[in-house]
Simulated scan of single mutants.
Amino acid sequence: MNLAEIETFLTIVNTKSITKTADLLFLSQPTVSHRLTSLENELGFSLVIRNKGHKQVELTPKGMDFIILAERWMSLWKETLELQHNQEQLLLNIGCTDSLNIAVFVPLYDKILIDYPHLDLSIQSHHSSELYGMLSEHNIDIGFVYHQLHYKNIISEKLFEEKLYLLQSEHPVVEKPIVHTDELDSTKELFLSWDDNFQIWHDRWLSSVSRPHISADTITLLDRLWKNADTWMIAPESVIHELSRYRKVYVSELKNPAPNRICYKIKHKYPKTTSKRAVELFEEILEQFLHLERKEIPIGEIWGGR
């Protein structure tokens, strides 16, 4: 087996078409067919069912079973190339939620760039549920999520938890240090679903009244859309600290508080050999970073801004 044959087979699996595979790989259709036949001859069994007149390619039962082996072969090939490229330079693939990347980890990444130049970072932002799948398939080396899912090959560990507050502009409509959600105009809400527990709490106290004025899936977008002084949001303390860097804000506690948001670190039980040292080094740096003293949030005061 060679790289070209395996790559061609996996592309056929994804496209279910010889024609589309040829287009994606910039090959002729006879070349794609030749590679597939060559691979089948080496394996000693058929991978696809050849039906004349059918546009879609159908895999044989053994072809379906071979997908896992082919993906593992490709993964090992990539690891080998990484070893050949540079044995001294480490690479770590990190997967995080958007709010964690933006509001918490940017100073950590800055520190690594300055103090650990031999550690390269590949950083991706995805939803928590997507990160579990990516880690399971070794597309990332370590992940940070806001809820626990049960994958037999993934280890999860609580990293930290944070409180949620009511956040208003420097001209608050409800200027009180402690506020109940019944006092808020839900049609003026800027909404982001911070985690599943928050969504359940929000559905009980706010969504039953009316829908939010604006819903978004990144804090950067929410910040850009926050134009009106009478709008408000409920956000975790890390996000509030991030937003207060650019604008003056007024923060209140909630009489009917939302559940704390818990961040979990997830790792694969069987990490890639090439990423093991990078993960260990990152965890050492992360532990030091999390022990740094956190700034308190002033309640019932106007603060922040450049």
Rank of each mutant, 00 (worst) to 15 (best):
I214C: 15
M74L: 15
I12C: 06
G63F: 15
I140V: 06
L43M: 03
L36C: 09
I302Y: 08
A103Y: 02
Q148F: 07
K16R: 14
S252V: 00
H118Y: 13
T19C: 00
R211V: 12
K176H: 05
W303D: 10
M134D: 05
S210I: 05
K111D: 03
T21Y: 07
L290S: 01
G143N: 14
Q148Y: 10
I18G: 11
I297Q: 11
G300R: 04
V239F: 02
K265C: 11
D65K: 15
L100N: 03
N2F: 04
G133N: 15
K52S: 13
I285N: 11
I6W: 10
K265E: 00
S215P: 05
E296H: 09
M134W: 12
T187I: 02
H180S: 15
K295E: 13
E253Q: 09
V249W: 09
T15R: 08
V32L: 08
R247T: 04
G63L: 12
S75W: 05
L36K: 00
L243S: 05
K152Q: 15
T21A: 04
S122F: 09
I154D: 00
A258Q: 04
P257K: 03
H118M: 15
L159K: 07
Y132K: 05
D217R: 08
S275T: 03
E170Y: 11
A216G: 07
A258W: 03
S125L: 06
K55E: 08
E82P: 03
L292T: 09
G44K: 03
R72F: 02
E162V: 00
E82N: 09
Q84T: 12
Y116H: 11
A235I: 01
L222C: 00
Y109A: 01
F45A: 01
H126M: 13
E42Y: 03
V48E: 05
Q168Y: 04
G63K: 08
F282R: 02
K16Y: 09
W77D: 12
L36R: 01
S244H: 02
D195N: 04
L206Q: 14
D115M: 03
T218C: 03
Y250W: 11
K267R: 09
L135S: 00
I94E: 03
D115F: 03
Y146W: 10
D217E: 10
G300Y: 03
I285R: 10
Y146L: 13
L167I: 07
S46L: 11
Y151T: 10
H118D: 11
K265Y: 01
Q89K: 07
N228K: 04
M1Y: 06
I214Q: 14
R224H: 13
H180T: 09
Y116E: 14
E293Q: 12
K78P: 07
Q148T: 09
D196Q: 15
K152L: 14
N256E: 11
N197V: 00
L3N: 14
N14W: 03
L149C: 08
P212K: 10
E175R: 12
G304I: 11
Q89I: 08
R261P: 04
I200F: 05
R306S: 12
S38E: 12
L76A: 02
I219M: 00
I123F: 01
S99G: 15
T11I: 06
E175P: 07
Y116T: 06
L159H: 08
L10M: 10
